[in-house]
């Protein structure tokens, strides 16, 4: 029951905060710098995937090593 209430509360919060009611503080036309090649988190996925594999094979830690959310909201 508590879990359901928590889900509904968070859902309601994000619903209120969703784009229909929140003005983006960085407008789409102001995101040119964020869309450049050098600002990409995963510019070369084949290379990043390989380096993560190199580390995970030799280190005890695992996970959360990639470029999580991806994208920059520039589209």
């Amino acid at each position: 029951m508590h879990r359901l209430i928590r889900l509904l509360l968070i859902a309601a919060l994000l619903q209120v905060a969703a784009c229909s009611s929140v003005e983006p503080w960085v407008k789409p036309y102001e995101r040119a710098n964020l869309a450049t090649e050098e600002m990409k988190f995963d510019r070369n996925p084949v290379c990043e995937s390989y380096m993560n594999h190199v580390y995970e094979a030799r280190e005890g830690a695992r996970g959360a090593s990639g470029s999580a959310g991806a994208g920059c909201g520039c589209n």
Partner: peptide
Amino acid sequence: VRQEIFGGLTVVS
């Protein structure tokens, strides 16, 4: 699953 929210400022996956 991946989606933009908050006017494209946030991407949740």
